[in-house]
Computed example of a mutant assay.
Amino acid sequence: MEDLFRPLYQERTSQLNTLGVLVVEKNEQNKAFTENFDSILLIIVKEVEGAVFTKHYVDQNNETASMYIVADQQLKEWLLLGTNRKVIEWLYHGRIIFDRNEFVHNLKTEIREFPFYGRKIKMTIEFAKLIKRYADGKAFFNDAHYLDAYNHVLHSLHHLARLAIIENGYYPELTVWNQVRHIEPEIYKLYEELLTSDEDLQKRLELLFLASDFLIHSRTEKGAGHLLFLMKQKEWWSINDLLNHDEVAHYAVDLVTLIEYLLERKLVRSVSIQTKGHGIFHRYYQVCKEI
């Protein structure tokens, strides 16, 4: 397979647009890791037509390979948002066969050491998703839609697990529950009981809501830390200004639910500003001075 790859990546390493090339070999214990291909060739470039360019190959021995050409900006966005964890795993575990100016080495270091600011924004992204899923799960539960509630609560536990992993200074892997079992066994136990308990679904959900409230509430200041830090930079914010802020854009889809939750937790307060209409006020938001 190496002989098949060589002409593919050698052609590209001579191009200044190419920043790095990695090879990922099939894992016999987990063939899905390489999408059932024998090998993955990951090529990182400055620019590519579209976010990702993909080609599939097979050699005379019927060994298969998949080549991915990814723009570095797209890769960095995935690293921040965690929206394509498989490619991030390839980057982390892949063998470097070309590295211009240590670009790939520095990316691997960033994943391993997880710089503080990267953790801060990533925690708020996960926390915002967690609050949205959890709130929707409770609403469905209160309306006796237990299967829909179960679906949302299960997703909220995934976000809680990822939040705990990031909080402890690690990058969430594909095998999140294997990680969290060692880092935060209390969260793993909640997940296990939701899936395997002999109680009926309604009772399982009731117990989970009771047990997980504290785990979520105790993480609020850290989980929402990026938003709270940003909001302290101005006396008050309109919801539109927050939604259109470059960094908040990463979790804007869940922002309104997050703001309402922070109001409830008294970490943010609303400020009423008179409009031109009598008796109608603009609603602005500011961080409570106590925090």
Rank of each mutant, 00 (worst) to 15 (best):
N27A: 12
N168V: 00
M231I: 06
Q286F: 03
V271G: 04
F281P: 00
R181D: 04
P172M: 05
E113F: 14
V24W: 09
L258V: 01
L255N: 10
N101W: 06
V87Y: 01
L263C: 00
S212E: 08
L201F: 05
D246P: 15
E126H: 04
E192N: 11
H282P: 01
M123R: 15
I131G: 00
D143I: 04
D241K: 12
N36H: 15
T83V: 06
G82L: 06
Q74V: 06
K234E: 06
I273N: 00
T124G: 07
K203Y: 00
L243W: 10
F229E: 14
N17K: 00
Y150E: 08
L190G: 01
K55Q: 13
T124Y: 07
E47N: 07
S14G: 01
Q29M: 13
V21W: 02
L8G: 08
F214G: 07
P172G: 02
L79A: 11
E193F: 01
W177K: 08
F33S: 07
G225I: 10
G20S: 05
H226Q: 02
N30H: 12
H56T: 08
Y284P: 00
A71K: 08
Y170Q: 14
E247I: 09
K132P: 02
E77H: 13
L42S: 12
L258F: 11
T275V: 05
T109G: 12
V153C: 11
V256I: 11
L91S: 03
F229K: 13
E113S: 13
Q202N: 05
K234H: 12
L19V: 03
L210C: 00
Q74D: 11
L194A: 06
H226D: 14
F281W: 11
L190D: 02
R6V: 12
V87P: 02
K108L: 09
E264V: 01
K276G: 08
T257M: 04
E221K: 15
K86C: 02
Y92H: 11
F141I: 09
L154Y: 07
Q286H: 04
P7C: 09
S66N: 04
T196P: 02
H217I: 05
E167K: 14
N84W: 00
R181P: 03
Y134M: 02
N61D: 12
Q29W: 13
L227R: 10
I280Q: 08
K76Q: 14
D254Y: 01
Y251L: 15
K120W: 11
E184F: 12
